[in-house]
Design a protein around this nucleic acid. Structure first.
Length: 900
RNA sequence: GCUGGGGUGGCGGAAUUGGUAGACGCCCAGGACUUAAAAUCCUGUGCCCUUAGGGGCGUACGGGUUCGAUUCCCGUCCCCAGUACCA
């Protein structure tokens, strides 16, 4: 290569060299510590976007860093290649989903390769291949055996017009995304995986990973799982008057009777407030309500019908729903007070949480308060601030303006009066259990995972329905249940596989009689729940992964991905790992030791006002004005036209993405990667600004020129470090900067910071550039210092700009085998060399900076005091004043406190 | 509403977790080189006052603790994210 930096040339050269030597292929090596670096695998949508580039650049930086530190690094990549967009393409453009998917993979693999990411390409996995989905099915059968996979009726979003089930996203706002008609609910038989069997483990095992995971992800997961401890309390129910009512068995615990008596079970976390209950409120879907519809008055029945209809509409998150309900006429008895309470139906009680029945305590629950206020129901306070308790008992009316949720003592609660409510909670639960009308209970928000999809492009669920034997799991030896090459995909109605007789017509694995296959496929989140195990052993025909191999590589040391997967994918993957442990494949609980979530890459998109055409302009092409807060107020195009503008998220679904290929073409892969890491902390959102990337290019060019300037003079690897370096010599100064930089870069990378080490490298290169010596005139000390600095710089640059780093390193040492083949290591700093010879000590007077003095490190406090007091500028402030005290912070500052 | 995270120059962002605020980069301005441009290099760049030396003010806002606060405490305002009648 010559003295001018041609990114493309360098990048192509090293990509070829790496591929040829298999530089990043990893195998088990007991002599080295292992490091498993993982990034979330891409969905093959067709094009890489900048979010991918950011994610993979960060992962690659860590992979290189660890490699250079002597770790045996596994860094794989694969394809999450099942999913709906492939079917959409089939519907819209008549392309076969497999062809569409595989073409996309080809394109995106090329893009990844041009970025020069250091993957072990041999380990690629493809979710849509039988070799992979065979083990989706294998796991399903295992879970079926373990009782973790089951089938039941459930409600799904349903569009009558399109005859299609819709995901929650597709039904947002209560309207079908395709035809705009209102969405209803429909009952459908679906397969579920019992994630709820692991609720406590999913919560409690967070303890094991809390050091390495972002706080907010852990929090979101625990909110999502939503453990809530309380009690079930059974209320005896009667019909008023003569009419009978029916009380069916609920969850096997409520007694049934057609003689006007039964029990309704409520769930409460506040049993201590039970004396304040004014009613029992049931969900409209509650079995007791549904069983008695004929017994209610027309008015009640109508209201229930209205509430049910309203509930069936998907919720609009923004809208506050007015409380509504009606008294059913049924009565329930408070087991503590024997008070008879009305039974209402309320629109704010959800059937799918708790028992679908609540005891309404308006004084201590805001929702109950609103309900009671609206319908004029009594509000009785039973928890009081301790100092007001006597007033409550003196029957003074203390009017509440809202529910009282603070801790306090019980009032108007018979025997329990005066007890602190936390204590009462425990004792009252205990009492209820003894009296057999209560039970300790823990409820969860987390539901079982519905995995059935009425889609073609997914793993077939390996189940057979036989008229003689019923539901029969496919045999392990018959796996995989192959997805047929073609199916009529319409995007509507039931599964396309239900229209392929060659697929569904089969024989019962048990009795060999004619039978029908399950025609639903699995949710694609199944594929991504265990793919990181498959990388370890991608060709194993018998098992998803080999237990010994997994024991070596797992758990993943560092996982990186978008925080949009904080809940779904990361809970499923944790669940799957626990199931694998219970199957006996592995022995640990958690798959990902450390997790880092990177922020979105967003772009600023400006609309051409006249044509209305959505066009992306860079900052160079438009002029942008911002208000004080930094928000864009106006955007004017280069020819002076005001434009409509909007800031949009860069994503695959919108046509405004910055094209990584274009960036690589113009600036090179190294500059693109370096800049995505330098521009902002990895966890922040990044607004893509093209002007900034020029800085990254300039930096790489500067380093390049420095190496070419010096390389012929610093080739001698046997130079000895100067033993006694003169303080203040340029060689000493440069060595200090080099070692300080090594320290900073290593520390920053270890704590997953990418922007600050790049800044440190820029400083080091500036320091080398600032040397006033020409190479020909340099003494041996200087030559040594420059050689050390440039070698360290090129090695430390490897994680951010590997191609350039390889080339420069090769130039410095005079051999082209590459950094890894030369067994080069990330430089290590020497404390002694990083130390300053003279440090600047700030001198403050009454906390205000007045001067600075220089001193050698470890100067005694006494000496520093004297230096500070002797300083001319300081004396202007302290002469003639009484010094009250002096504070010395070693190595930092002296503060002189004077009396004014 | 609740929960979590934030608010630092024109912009992205640094700051050893109480110790010299603004590293590094972008933008911008001036200069050198050049016939010219590009590239490169140099200088300046928080705000205000000052001819200069220098001074004052500054980390959303108002208080507090401290010799000293971007950092800790109290209150207010604003932004972002998650979530939603969770009993």
């Amino acid at each position: 290569m010559d003295g001018k930096y041609f990114a493309k040339k360098v990048e192509r050269k090293w990509q070829q060299k790496w591929a040829k030597s298999g530089a990043f292929q990893a195998e088990i090596d007991g002599d080295k510590p292992k490091f498993y670096q993982l990034e979330m695998l891409p969905y093959p949508s067709g094009n890489l976007h900048m979010g991918h580039v950011r994610n993979y650049s960060a992962g690659d930086a860590l992979a290189w860093f660890k490699r250079l530190q002597g770790f045996n690094v596994l860094h794989p990549i694969g394809w999450d290649s099942f999913g709906q967009p492939a079917e959409d393409a089939a519907v819209k453009r008549g392309i076969n989903p497999r062809k569409w998917t595989e073409d996309n993979i080809e394109i995106m693999r090329g893009q990844l390769q041009r970025l020069g990411l250091s993957y072990d390409w041999r380990r690629q996995i493809y979710a849509h291949t039988p070799e992979y989905y065979k083990f989706d099915q294998w796991f399903f059968l295992k879970m079926y055996e373990m009782g973790l996979a089951y089938k039941r009726m459930t409600q799904v979003n349903w569009c009558w017009h399109d005859q299609a089930t819709l995901s929650n996203e597709q039904a947002s706002g209560g309207l079908c995304w395709r035809c705009g008609n209102p969405v209803t609910k429909k009952d459908l038989e679906q397969w579920f995986l019992k994630t709820t069997a692991y609720t406590d483990q999913l919560l409690d095992d967070m303890e094991q990973i809390k050091e390495g995971w972002p706080q907010n992800v852990l929090k979101r997961q625990s909110d999502w799982i939503g453990r809530s401890r309380g009690a079930y309390v059974d209320f005896e129910v009667r019909s008023s008057g003569d009419s009978l009512f029916y009380c069916p068995i609920i969850d096997g615990i409520t007694s049934s009777s057609d003689h006007g008596k039964g029990r309704i079970r409520v769930f409460t976390t506040r049993i201590d407030t039970i004396y304040g209950a004014n009613s029992i409120v049931l969900a409209a879907e509650h079995p007791v309500i549904q069983a008695n519809l004929d017994n209610f008055s027309e008015e009640v029945a109508n209201k229930i019908a209205v509430i049910r209809t309203e509930n069936a509409k998907p919720a609009d998150h923004e809208k506050y729903v007015e409380k509504d309900g009606i008294d059913t006429g049924l009565k329930a008895v408070n087991p503590f007070s024997d008070e008879e309470l009305p039974v209402w139906v309320g629109n704010y009680v959800m059937m799918d949480y708790g028992t679908g029945a609540v005891m309404s305590v308006p004084a201590h629950d805001q929702r109950d308060f609103e309900f009671a206020t609206k319908f004029g129901l009594p509000i009785k306070q039973v928890i009081s601030e301790p100092h007001l308790a006597h007033q409550h008992h003196a029957m003074q009316v203390l009017v509440l303006e809202q529910a009282f949720n603070e801790p306090g003592v019980l009032v108007h609660s018979d025997y329990w009066n005066g007890k602190p409510n936390a204590q009462a909670k425990a004792e009252m639960t205990e009492y209820g259990i003894k009296q057999r009308f209560a039970e300790s209970a823990t409820t969860y928000r987390l539901r079982d995972w519905g995995i059935s999809r009425q889609r073609y492009w997914g793993s077939p669920i390996p189940i057979v329905y036989c008229s003689a034997c019923g539901v029969v799991p496919e045999k392990f030896e018959n796996l995989p249940v192959m997805l047929p090459d073609e199916a009529p995909i319409t995007g509507t109605g039931e599964s396309p596989l239900a229209k392929v007789p060659e697929f569904y017509e089969t024989h019962c694995p048990k009795c060999k009689g004619p039978a029908r296959r399950e025609t639903d496929t699995m949710d694609t989140f199944v594929d991504s729940s265990w793919y990181f195990f498959r990388y370890l052993d991608p060709n194993n025909p018998a098992l998803p992964t080999d237990p010994e191999t997994a024991a070596y590589w797992m758990p993943v040391d560092q996982y990186i991905g978008g925080d949009d997967h904080a809940v779904m994918h990361l809970i499923y993957a944790r669940f799957w790992t626990k199931v694998m442990r219970d199957i006996g494949l592995i022995t640990f609980d958690e798959p990902f030791k450390r997790l880092m979530t990177q922020g979105m890459v967003i772009g600023e998109t400006y609309f051409d006002d006249e044509s209305g055409k959505r066009t992306y302009f860079t900052h160079d092409a438009v002029s942008v004005t911002r208000d004080v807060k930094g928000k864009i107020t106006t955007v004017v195009s280069a020819d002076g036209k005001p434009l409509k503008f909007a800031i949009e998220r860069r994503s695959k679904s919108k046509g405004n993405g910055v094209d990584p290929d274009e960036m690589v073409e113009i600036y090179g892969a190294d500059a693109t990667r370096l800049f995505t890491l330098f521009a902002a902390p990895i966890e922040n959102e990044l607004v893509w600004n093209e002007a900034g990337i020029e800085g990254a290019v300039r930096f790489l060019q500067r380093v390049w020129r420095l190496v070419y300037k010096w390389k012929d003079h610093i080739r001698d690897a046997h130079l000895k470090p100067p033993d006694q370096e003169k303080t203040g010599s340029s060689a000493r100064d440069l060595r200090r900067k080099t070692h300080q930089t090594i320290k900073r870069v290593s520390e920053n990378l270890s704590s997953l910071q990418f922007n600050t080490p790049v800044a440190a490298l820029m400083e080091l290169s500036n320091a080398i550039g600032d040397l006033k010596i020409e190479p020909a005139d340099a003494g041996t000390d200087e030559v040594f210092a420059v050689r050390e600095a440039l070698t360290a710089l090129s090695l430390m640059l490897t994680p951010f700009a590997p191609h350039t780093a390889e080339e420069l390193f090769a130039e410095i040492i005079g051999n082209e085998d590459g950094i890894l083949a030369n067994d080069a290591r990330f430089p290590e700093f020497q404390d002694e060399l990083a130390k300053e010879d003279l440090i600047e000590i700030a001198v403050q007077v009454n906390g205000k900076l007045r001067s600075k003095v220089r001193a050698v490190p470890d100067t005694s406090d006494e000496k520093l005091r004297e230096l500070a007091k002797a300083d001319e500028k300081v004396r202007e402030y302290i002469d003639g004043k009484e010094i009250v005290k002096m504070i010395v912070v070693p190595g930092r500052l002296v503060n002189i406190v004077i009396k004014n």
